[in-house]
Design a protein around this nucleic acid. Sequence first.
DNA 1: TATTGTTATACTCTATAACTATA
DNA 2: TATAGTTATAGAGTATAACAATA
Lengths: 154, 154
Amino acid sequence: MKHKRPQAAALEDHLGYWLRLVSNHVSQGFARKLDGRGVTVAEWVVLREMLHQPPLAPSQLAGRLGLTRGAISKLADRLIAKRLILRRAGQDDLRFQSLELTQQGAELVPELAALADQNEAECFGHLGKAERLALHEAMQALARHHSLTSKPID
Amino acid sequence: MKHKRPQAAALEDHLGYWLRLVSNHVSQGFARKLDGRGVTVAEWVVLREMLHQPPLAPSQLAGRLGLTRGAISKLADRLIAKRLILRRAGQDDLRFQSLELTQQGAELVPELAALADQNEAECFGHLGKAERLALHEAMQALARHHSLTSKPID
DNA sequence: TATTGTTATACTCTATAACTATA
DNA sequence: TATAGTTATAGAGTATAACAATA
């Protein structure tokens, strides 16, 4: 053998470590931008998911976003308090509610989307188009592989 | 123009979205594994950084890990309570303390490292070696570009 | 009984800012 | 005054589990 090897892998040897480092930085930068509009990252995700969609039940949102019903419930409360969405009782089945954007919410989302674009550009704009695309696809493939979308949750 | 384009980018159009999704999943899986040993991810990061290192001052750790001094202080408290590290008063300059692993801590780290390896394998083991390497380097390059290591903090 | 949604509880992670002790 | 460390405060993000209403 040529070199002595450390018994334990260094932090930097794990892809997960770098992923977390970069992801935290990106999200944090975005959080700062959103802060000016009085919205958090998790709230943005919910709002964006609801744009141009028919009214959704909380459980559907939870499924799409990979969150628990409890988490969605709390987020919905906050968004309602901010008058960005509204909650209506179910029609057929009273257990199902429906959530939809208010006009104020619908108007806000594109503004937030612009901030998201801006953040994206600041974080990844320096990469070549091909590299950006490759990363994008790699992440999507990982998400698919681990079934990170439409999880039943709970 | 060929297609109507949505005014707002979808969540899935942003690399940051996927990064966060995958990163959260990876960290969460790891957290579950660590949980059995009574350690959190943030604590693991600190422990790993300290292995085979001369005693470090909290502020140095903060710098290396990109955390605030306050955050390190709290993590150190927890690790001390778990008897995994110990804190000594400074020598020359009394303002600087030194943190080091206890024997118990030093013995635990390699076990945790094995869990980290296992998690890494579960999350990324299905990828080809080349792809894994490419991702690794892309993330490191991003971290470098955004100066995510050895930030002054505070 | 099974499902939807709410609520209570509990942590981690992290930041900011004020404060103390040392230099 | 400047730096190291602590502490107080705060809030995001999330989970689990117990519970109520509806089916």
